[in-house]
Computed example of a mutant assay.
Amino acid sequence: MLWYAAMTIVVPTQYDGYNSLSQSISELSAIDAPTRTLWIVLGIFYFILFIAFGLGTWLSANGNRKLQIVAIIIVFDAVFGIFWPPMHQREVIAAGGGTVTDTLHIVWAFVHLVLMLLMIGFGASVFGKDFRIFSAAIVLVFIVFGILTTIDSRRIKGNFPTPFLGLWERINIATYMIWVIVFASRRLKRNNQLASKVTFFDSTVKKDPYADCYNNHSVFCCLPGCCGSAAKHIVFYTAALARSGFMDLEIICIGIIAFICLNWLVWHYRRAGNQFFLY
């Protein structure tokens, strides 16, 4: 998610005349767009990371059918996105130069939206009431800004101005990213709880060498040299920090996204000659 957020900030800087507030993200990879190759190359890494996230969700489902369905949706959505047909630049579409690839681009967007809603629906049912309420709020944001995005998108064909198309679309994307991050955090906490129950309270299971780190909430016990390999120390050190209150994955990840968005606004503000939006 953070990789994709960085893409939406870095790539526009290589497109002279591109306006992130009034132009859609799809225009960065449009046919004959100067940033098409860069977007595709960076996008390959994003799809690989998202597929890995889906596989990780499957492997950590622990037999939970709903989590397994979410994992399947994530992997399918990532693979499906690799073959996303590009759109033409808006000048070409406005001049009547649109082809079947523009139609398929919209079809892919619709399917992607359906997959996102299925992912949120099944994912919300895994955890508690608070996460279901949170997920419902996310869907509400999708509906509101999805309608605004659709209204502005229709104006492209007539070559009418779309002053906030990019903004509406990016709000929806940021909302989706936040849901995925919170979902991943809840999944991580769930797996830690399950591991604790099996490892620490089942006398028939060999004691985990990191049990003291967890039970005592000790950060320093998990430092390299205490026990185990360096790779495992990174994992357990992070978990120890989270359990001891030094770090909350949800807050940190959301904070990173907020920081990226803030920098994007500052960059656009300066690039626009200290004038916000299109005025």
Rank of each mutant, 00 (worst) to 15 (best):
P86R: 06
W58K: 12
A239W: 03
R154W: 05
W39H: 00
T101K: 05
T8Y: 13
T103F: 11
A174H: 02
W267A: 09
V70I: 06
L2R: 05
L140T: 12
Q23A: 13
R187P: 00
N62G: 10
I257M: 06
S29N: 11
I9R: 09
Y46V: 14
F47K: 03
L117Y: 11
M177E: 05
I51T: 08
I251E: 07
Y176D: 00
P34I: 07
R132S: 08
L265N: 06
A5G: 15
I40M: 09
A137M: 03
G128K: 01
I256Y: 04
I178F: 03
I48V: 15
S20A: 04
V266E: 01
L2F: 07
K206C: 01
Y4T: 15
T149G: 10
V205N: 10
V180G: 01
C213R: 04
T35Q: 00
S135R: 02
G146K: 06
L249F: 08
L42C: 10
L165E: 04
A239T: 10
A94E: 06
I252L: 15
A109L: 14
Y210P: 06
L55W: 12
Y15C: 10
W179P: 01
A184C: 08
A272T: 09
S29A: 14
S185K: 00
L278Q: 14
R155S: 08
H217G: 06
P12G: 08
I51S: 11
C227D: 15
P161Q: 11
T175I: 00
S153G: 03
V198M: 10
K232L: 09
S203Q: 06
F145Y: 15
T150N: 05
I133G: 00
P209T: 05
I147Y: 05
I151G: 02
G123S: 13
I40Q: 07
H112N: 08
A5W: 06
F183M: 07
I9K: 05
L113R: 03
P85V: 05
I256A: 12
Y237A: 00
I171A: 05
V41H: 01
F160T: 02
L188C: 09
T149H: 09
C213E: 07
R132W: 02
E27V: 11
A211M: 10
L28P: 13
S218T: 13
F142I: 02
Y269F: 15
L194C: 07
V107C: 09
M87E: 08
N216G: 06
E250P: 00
F220P: 00
F83D: 00
G121Q: 11
F220Y: 08
G255N: 09
H233S: 10
T13E: 09
Y4P: 04
E91F: 11
K129A: 15
A94M: 03
A109T: 01
S229K: 11
G81I: 01
A61R: 08
P34R: 02
C226Q: 09
P12L: 04
L140N: 00
F201N: 08
L241Q: 01
P12T: 13
F122K: 02
F131A: 11
A231M: 07
E91Y: 04
S22K: 10
I9V: 15
G128M: 09
L115C: 05
A272G: 15
E250K: 03
V180P: 02
K207R: 14
C227A: 13
V11Y: 03
